[in-house]
């Protein structure tokens, strides 16, 4: 009996000396910091976010103020990125456009989480007929082309009370969010189904844990990693969708600046004033790339398989 009660000294030494004490999130954080692309992505996102938040402090121009005396100006010391066909400052419009894009990215994903997470979790943990029914519905949603559904939804929503909230931006949040949640609900359901097979869940059942307890304590916390990654990849998709909608003229209403609308406006004068297209296009590309890099980094960092 004695030697099982006395922790073996070498055994303790092995744990203490070999690797420093780290929690899983700690571990993920350290790995994320080591990933240069992910860090670069995070920095780009931060710069855009700061620019969007502090836009009024950074530029003295109003994004909506027209100045017909100075249209199609090339970039200069006065107008850093030139002016557009109505003489509005492009730099200011780009900064305020970042507000639109980031808001779309974040709020759609919030809606996605609010709908997708509970439905996926419910289907996965209940199983059986409930699961079957919910997932067939998700499959049907999945079968429709996303962009078509979003256009339809935004057309319908425009007629409702949401139509005029925040210059039409609310409609965009809802339309994208109401379509994109299926991805997350599928992911959450899959995660939960596979976690349910794990022995630690069986152990919790064997000690009398109830269904909701098991879902909240074991199933959801362990699906968190993949959910975070999916959300991170969802942000650029939503930004791109908003840009596309605004480009075809059914996105945010003017004069609210949007990168997609800026490209649309600049398209006709692409050869005489190329900066009107290049600036918003580069902004979209940069923010999408940044989120993709960060998402890749998060996926590698949060994957517990890469460290045992």
């Amino acid at each position: 009996m004695t030697d099982t009660q006395q922790p073996n000294p070498s055994e303790m030494a092995e744990v203490t000396q070999a690797r420093p004490h780290r929690t899983l999130l700690n571990d993920a954080w350290i790995r994320l910091r080591r990933n240069r692309l992910a860090v670069a992505g995070a920095i780009i996102i931060l710069i855009f976010a700061l620019g969007a938040i502090f836009a009024p402090l950074i530029t003295k121009y109003n994004f909506a103020k027209q100045d017909l005396d100075s249209i199609f100006l090339q970039p200069s010391g006065v107008h850093w990125l030139g002016t557009d066909e109505l003489g509005r400052d492009v730099f200011a419009r780009m900064l305020y456009g970042a507000r639109t894009s980031l808001a779309v990215g974040i709020f759609t994903q919030l809606i996605v989480l609010l709908i997708g997470l509970p439905i996926g979790a419910f289907a996965g943990s209940k199983g059986g007929r409930v699961d079957n029914l919910l997932m067939r519905f998700v499959d049907i949603m999945y079968g429709f082309p996303d962009i078509l559904l979003i256009i339809l939804l935004s057309a319908v929503l425009r007629g409702t009370v949401f139509g005029n909230m925040g210059g039409g931006i609310f409609v965009i949040f809802l339309a994208i969010g109401l379509v994109a949640w299926v991805n997350v609900s599928r992911l959450v359901r899959g995660q939960i189904l596979s976690l349910k097979q794990r022995d630690f869940v069986t152990a919790a059942r064997a000690m009398g844990g109830k269904g909701t307890y098991i879902t909240m304590r074991h199933l959801l916390p362990n699906s968190l990693g993949p959910i975070i990654v999916s959300i991170t990849f969802g942000v650029p998709r939503a930004i791109f969708t908003e840009a596309a909608l605004s480009y075809i003229g059914i996105g945010v209403k003017p004069p609210t600046p949007s990168w997609g609308a800026m490209i649309h406006d600049g398209y006709n004068v692409m050869f005489t004033a190329p900066h009107l297209v290049i600036v918003p296009a580069v902004a979209i590309a940069l923010i999408m790339l940044a989120f993709t890099f960060l998402g890749d980094g998060l996926r590698d960092a949060l994957d517990p398989r890469s460290r045992r």
Partner: peptide, 21 residues
């Protein structure tokens, strides 16, 4: 449920049977 506490289990795979979080 009240009886479960008197019946316990030790699993095969110690990697699978402990919640990593």
């Amino acid at each position: 449920r009240p009886l479960r506490r008197k019946l316990q289990v030790v699993f095969q795979d110690p990697y699978d049977s402990l919640n990593p979080r």
